[in-house]
């Protein structure tokens, strides 16, 4: 039995190092070896990382049908792999893709799946996972089966940490037969590259209903520009039709991890914080001194956004 990290593609996604860190901690606690299975074509891209994070072995599933992300081929490939490699727990970096692949894999393996996981513990011989619920208002702990427990890890609040002693993982090519698999749904229009992504932004200004009206969004845009960053908003602004869903920051929107997040007129609801609480520094501007957002903030300004933001723009442009 092993603890297995599972990923795909030839680029290492953000969050992978945090998943490796969590997987290593759990594998040590459970006394099981740590493996990393990659569906892709390039082992070298992951081997250095695997070594630094204490992975014992890397398994590489290469197949022409795995060249692009195709959920049907990927599920089939992983199901066949896990028929050979017995896994106590399988950890995936939680993304839109893994939210489809993880439950499908759980069904194929006769296992179980939990998503939104931020902590794993070995307790009384069993895997216990903690996951956010109610948009982050509560934390739920689940006990999972001893075999084939599939865990989608939400990495925004986790920290990556190298192993004390690096390993020298071997790279094992794995053959799978995907002869009969065809994707049942085909992509007819890929997402258009819409410039930089909020997920990758280092500085973000986020607006909420405290801005008063849609016309005041210009302040958010200008402050973001003055700080050299991007802007977004809470789901309420999407629901109100002020902003496009592509700018929504939160549990069901963009999950960001900037260096600086400026929350303007945002109350700090858990659903929103799920998308920005990983920011290294949070600045909050809110009229209500008791607003939840100040619990997350490093710096707080109690005041009206409409008065404070123009001054911030001036100060940021000067000097």
């Amino acid at each position: 039995m092993s603890v297995v990290v599972c990923s795909w593609g030839n680029t290492v996604e953000r969050g992978t190092e945090e998943v490796l860190t969590a997987a290593r901690a759990y594998s040590v606690a459970a006394g099981l070896p740590l493996r990393w299975v990659v569906a892709g074509t390039d082992c070298e891209a992951v081997r250095g990382l695997a070594a630094r994070y204490g992975v014992a072995a890397v398994d590489l599933i290469s197949h022409p049908k795995l060249a692009g992300y195709g959920p049907d081929a990927l599920t089939e490939a992983l199901a066949r792999y896990f028929a050979q490699v017995q896994a106590a727990a399988v950890l995936l970096n939680q993304t839109a893709e893994s939210r489809l692949v993880a439950p499908r894999l759980a069904t194929r393996l006769g296992g179980a799946v939990v998503t939104n996981v931020f902590a794993l513990r070995h307790e009384g011989g069993a895997l216990h996972v903690s996951a956010t619920a109610y948009g982050g208002d509560t934390h739920a702990t689940y006990r999972m089966p001893a075999k084939n427990s599939i865990v989608c890890v939400a990495t925004t609040t986790l920290a990556a940490e190298h192993a004390a002693a690096p390993t020298e993982p071997q790279c094992n090519p794995v053959d799978v037969d995907l002869g009969a698999v065809e994707e049942r749904f085909k992509v007819t229009a890929a997402p258009k590259a819409e410039g930089p992504r909020l997920e990758d932004a280092e500085i973000i200004v986020g607006g909420g209903r405290g801005l008063g009206k849609a016309d005041n969004l210009g302040l958010i845009r200008d402050l973001a520009a003055a700080l050299g960053g991007m802007w977004g908003g809470s789901r309420l602004l999407v629901d109100d039709g002020w902003i496009d869903a592509s700018r929504q920051i939160g549990l069901t929107g963009k999950i960001t991890r900037p260096r600086l997040y400026v929350a303007a007129g945002i109350s700090g609801a858990s659903q929103h914080m799920a998308g920005c609480s990983a920011a290294k520094t949070i600045v909050a501007i809110n009229k209500d001194r008791d607003a939840a957002i100040f619990r997350y903030a490093r710096f707080g300004i109690v005041g009206d956004c409409l008065e404070v933001i123009p001054e911030l723009i001036k100060a940021a442009r000067g000097g």
Partner: peptide, 25 residues
Amino acid sequence: VALVKQQLPVVAGNCEFLQGSAPEV
């Protein structure tokens, strides 16, 4: 999959409130 427990998260809270007029803060 058994729900073992549910808890309310504790947020540390470490906010430094800046004081003064809008231009000052």
